[in-house]
Amino acid sequence: MASLKELKGRIASVKSTQKITKAKQMVAAAKLRKAQAAAEAARPYNVRLERIVATLASKVSASESAPKLLAGTGKDDVHLLVVANSDRGLAGAFNANIVKAAVLKARFLIAEGKTVQFYLIGRKGRPVINRTFPGMIVGQYDTTGAKAPGYEQAQAIAQDISAMFFAGKFDVAHLFYSTFKSALAQIPTEQQLIPVAIPADAPAASNAAVEYEPDEATILEDLLPRNMTIQLFKALLENMASEQGASMTAMDNATRNAGDLINNLTIQYNRSRQAAITTELIEIIAGAEAL
């Protein structure tokens, strides 16, 4: 049985841990609200751009002049998996879930005889992926410098990736991130980045009378890189909201567990103290009787 002093020390240590998890939970809650608002604000642009690209793509894709980002390289050999993680832990299974989805996909592709490469965003995915697939990480983007995901970051990443694409380093790119559903549920999501996946229910070119300046293909060529940037930006924002949501939930659980632990320890402490007192009393009484 632990001594009284030991128990006291443990209670104090759990209490200070609880303070930390509680603080982290409150910080995450505040950040979550901000991240959600940012994700919300980015939606209108995304919706409109997606619609325009879908309309244009359905017109151009049939022709020979379709841009490379839309048509692909014509091969399907080298796959680049872009994995977006966060820089910090203490967010439950958030990072692990994204990495798990990417690893699963990588195994599947390798089993099909494809070459797989990784491009990592954020710090947290690196150790696991490096261990599972050593030497397959071809690029990395560091997000530690910025507090919140910005459009400039997404632009830099998009430039990096498209430079690699046009250099012929890969044929297909997949993006892995976590979609924010609620503070309790974040869904690891996979999305094809290159060639651009056109949603099946894309609006058919209904208004044939639309005039284009310059022509459709040129506009599309201008819009596709932008579309990729916005997809990355969306992923970063969703990730941010997911991370904060996961962190909030994980820290809430941790705080509650610490509370339970403190209660148990306190009961144990009180019991042993009482036992010590009782023993002392018995000794005194026994001594008095012996006289």
């Binding site: 244009l56 009378a209 639309v210 005039e211 284009y212 300046e213 310059p214 506009i219």
Partner: peptide, 16 residues
Amino acid sequence: EGDFGVLEGHAPFMST
């Protein structure tokens, strides 16, 4: 490819 003004009822149009 040049400035253009858009009033209400403009024909459908896309431009960079």
